[in-house]
């Protein structure tokens, strides 16, 4: 019984794949554009490991190294499963399940707001309504967080503007070491890879829904 859940639940550790020198160079250039410095700089050969390096101020607080949920272990998973391993995305994960949106998380970039971001945006009652009743509205909101192709943060910054699945446009600008989408949202841990998808964790909820947080209902008492 002891390992019953292990095989099915724990992501299989994968070998770190090293990219060739050219890819390494390309990333180095892009990193310079965005100013990201979160990952290990070089290995012994002076070649930058390209895969599975996540960048941003929150990355240090998320599973790393060989811990369950480390970026490398997520690379072979569909995006809806990968987000289940990133512990600041419990609300986003719940929203994906509530809206049945898992199937759409392929061939896209997922801009996933943290739990704190959801809590700053929606009152607890409002969030419950979205998760339980207003799932059409929630689905549209999530689509405003999906960019139409898998892109690294560097690629998005280079593009300057990206299109969302909801057919909106997002401007992307470099802000110091992170990327900013629109006016507020910034990456806090970017460049997770999943199967045919990229995941960037961001610190604000995008889209057009009104902010309902800020009152007594944010942290309802027992």
């Amino acid at each position: 019984m002891t390992d019953v859940f292990l095989d099915t639940m724990r992501p299989t550790p994968r070998r770190v794949r090293r990219a060739g020198p050219a890819a390494g160079l390309a990333l180095a250039t892009l990193l310079a554009v965005t100013g990201c410095t979160g990952g290990d700089a070089t290995d012994g050969d002076g070649i930058t490991p390209v895969a599975f390096t996540v960048t941003g101020p929150l990355c240090a607080e998320l599973p790393a190294g060989t811990e369950p949920g480390n970026p490398e272990s997520l690379a072979g998973m569909p995006a809806d499963q990968a987000v289940q391993w990133i512990p600041v995305l419990t609300t986003f994960d719940a929203a994906v399940r509530a809206t049945g949106l898992a199937g759409e998380l392929t061939g896209v970039t997922v801009l996933a707001p943290t739990d704190d971001a959801f809590a700053e945006k929606f009152s607890r009652t409002n969030l419950d309504e979205l998760l339980l009743h207003d799932t059409d509205e929630l689905r549209e909101l999530l689509r405003e967080h999906l960019v139409t192709a898998p892109m690294s943060v560097a690629e998005m910054v280079a593009a300057g503007t990206v299109k969302t699945v909801a057919e909106g446009e997002l401007t992307v600008t470099a802000q110091g070491s992170v990327a900013r989408f629109g006016n507020e949202a910034e990456t806090v841990c970017a460049d997770y890879q999943a199967t045919n998808a990229r995941i960037h964790v961001i610190d604000h909820v995008l889209g057009s829904l009104p902010t309902t947080a800020g009152g007594e209902d944010d942290h309802p008492y027992h």
Binding site: F5, L6, M9, R10, P63, E67, P68, G69, W85, P87
Partner: peptide, 8 residues
């Protein structure tokens, strides 16, 4: 426990 808290 198995996920060291990453998943409930």
């Amino acid at each position: 426990e198995q996920t060291l808290g990453a998943q409930y």
